[in-house]
Amino acid sequence: MSHSEQERDRRPGYERLDGHEAVEGIGSYLIGLGLATLLTIVSFFVARTTLVWQPSIPVALAVLAIAQMGVHLVFFLHITTGPDNVNNVMALAFGVLIVLLLITGSLWIMAHMNQNMMPMDQIMQMQR
């Protein structure tokens, strides 16, 4: 191995994983897989069940979906609160803000426009 290659391999982020670190990594993915499977099964169960009050089901599904996205972010994408992750978390927070604005804004505006719109049969009559 040349000198420059040795230097490069010592730089943080380029160390080859040893057996212990690899086992640790697999453990994290296994926890993620377990939690994600559990949340998925609960989602599918909630969608079909008649045991709970029906109007609460969409809320339950949304909560379960957000929880599962959190599990994926932490255990699969390794977004943490560690010091090397501050920028990733800030970018994620900004992304979530834009997504919320887009979705709630669209639904809010379109609901109002639907309300203010003349019923379709009346529009049809005016066109005659």
Binding site: S43, A47, I57, H72
Partner: peptide, 18 residues
């Protein structure tokens, strides 16, 4: 996979219940 979580929850499961 994260996008799919949103998809199966919001499109398929909600679509099948509501």
């Amino acid at each position: 996979d994260i996008v799919w979580v949103a998809l199966f929850s919001m499109v398929y499961l909600m679509g099948a219940t509501i």
